[in-house]
C-alpha cells in the first residue's frame, strides 16, 4: 500500500459543500428559547410588570404606547404590558393541565387497544372515533356552560376532546412493535402483562406522544384563547389573553393596540410550542435527519 501522508499536496480536492446555517440555530433551539422566555416572563411577572395589572385608572384609559405604558392602556386604564405578562400565567397553567389530563389517558387507551387487540381494541377505538368526530370547540363551550366558566373547567373541557389523537397514535405504534423480536424475547423470558406494557412498550411510545403534545400545545393555546374570547374562560378582572382581545376588539379601529398586544402574545406562545414540537420531532425521528 502506498504511503498516503506525503501526498497531501495543495491539489487535494474536496467535495463542494452547501451553505448551511450554524448548527445551533435550528427549529428546536428557537422554539426552546421562546418557550423558556414565556415561562420566565410568566414566573417573574410580579417583578417585571411596572403596574398592578388589575388596578383601574380611568384618567389613563386607552393611552397609546409610550415611555410609561410600553404597550399602552385598555379602556379601564390598566397597563397592557403588565396585563400581557400576567396573562401568560393562566394560559400556561391551562395548557399544562390539558397535557397532564390528555397524555396519560390517550396513551393508556391506545396501548391497551394495540396490545390486547380483539374486542378490547374495537370498543376502545370506537369510543376514540366518536370523541374524535365531535367538534371540539363546540363541545368545550357546551361543557363550560354546564360546568361554569373558569380555569379548571376550561382545561377539563379542552382535555375531553383532545385525548383521542394520542390514543390513535399510541395504538398504531403499539401495533407496529407488538410483533417485534424484542417483545417476543421479553415474553420468552417470562415478562408479561402490565410489566411488559409499562416497562417495555411505554418507553417506546412515549417519545412520539411528547412530540405530539408539544405540537398540540399550539392548538390548545388557541382554543384556550378562544374560550376566553367568548367569555367562557377565566373571568375578569383576571388578565387573560383571549378576553383581553375580546375587550380590545370593541375599540379596534381607533385603539388597535388594545387588541393587537394580547393577540401577538397568543401568536408568540402558539408559535413557540409549534416550533418546539417540530424541532422535537426532527430530533427524535432519525428519518428527518438531513
Amino acid at each position: 500500500m502506498m504511503d498516503s501522508t506525503n501526498n497531501l499536496t495543495p491539489h487535494t480536492v474536496q467535495k463542494k459543500r452547501r451553505f448551511r446555517l450554524p448548527r445551533w440555530l435550528n427549529t428546536f433551539n428557537i422554539g426552546l428559547i421562546m418557550v423558556m422566555m414565556l415561562l420566565g416572563l410568566a414566573l417573574l411577572a410580579p417583578l417585571l410588570s411596572p403596574f398592578d395589572p388589575n388596578v383601574q385608572n380611568i384618567q389613563d384609559r386607552l393611552l397609546a404606547p409610550d415611555a410609561v405604558h410600553w404597550f399602552g392602556t385598555d379602556r379601564f386604564g390598566r397597563d397592557l404590558f403588565s396585563r400581557v405578562l400576567f396573562g401568560a400565567r393562566p394560559t400556561l397553567i391551562l395548557v399544562s393541565l390539558v397535557v397532564i389530563l390528555t397524555v396519560p389517558i390517550g396513551l393508556a387507551v391506545g396501548i391497551f387497544a394495540g396490545y390486547f387487540g380483539g374486542w378490547v381494541e374495537r370498543i376502545l377505538m370506537r369510543i376514540t372515533d366518536i370523541v374524535m368526530s365531535l367538534p371540539s370547540l363546540v363541545i368545550a363551550l357546551a361543557l363550560v356552560s354546564i360546568l361554569g366558566p373558569g380555569l379548571m373547567n376550561g382545561a377539563l373541557a379542552l382535555a375531553f376532546t383532545s385525548w383521542p389523537s394520542f390514543a390513535r397514535q399510541a395504538r398504531t405504534e403499539t401495533l407496529s412493535i407488538r410483533r417485534s423480536d424484542y417483545l417476543s424475547a421479553a415474553r420468552m423470558q417470562g415478562v408479561t402483562g402490565l410489566r411488559l406494557i409499562v416497562g417495555h412498550i411505554l418507553p417506546l411510545v412515549l417519545p412520539s406522544a411528547i412530540v405530539r403534545a408539544a405540537l398540540n400545545l399550539g392548538g390548545i393555546i388557541l382554543a384556550a384563547a378562544g374560550l376566553g374570547f367568548l367569555g367562557m374562560g377565566i373571568q375578569p378582572p383576571t388578565a387573560e389573553w383571549g378576553s383581553m382581545v375580546s375587550s380590545g376588539s370593541r375599540v379596534i379601529f381607533d385603539q388597535w393596540w388594545v387588541a393587537a398586544v394580547p393577540g401577538f402574545a397568543i401568536l408568540f406562545a402558539s408559535l413557540a410550542f409549534n416550533l418546539l414540537g417540530d424541532g422535537l420531532r426532527d430530533k427524535m425521528d432519525p428519518r428527518h435527519d438531513k
Binding site: T12, Q14, K15, R18
Partner: peptide
C-alpha cells in the same frame, strides 16, 4: 454520500 460526511482525495 450524505452531505454530513466530509470527502477529500488527492
Amino acid at each position: 454520500l450524505p452531505d454530513s460526511l466530509h470527502v477529500q482525495a488527492d
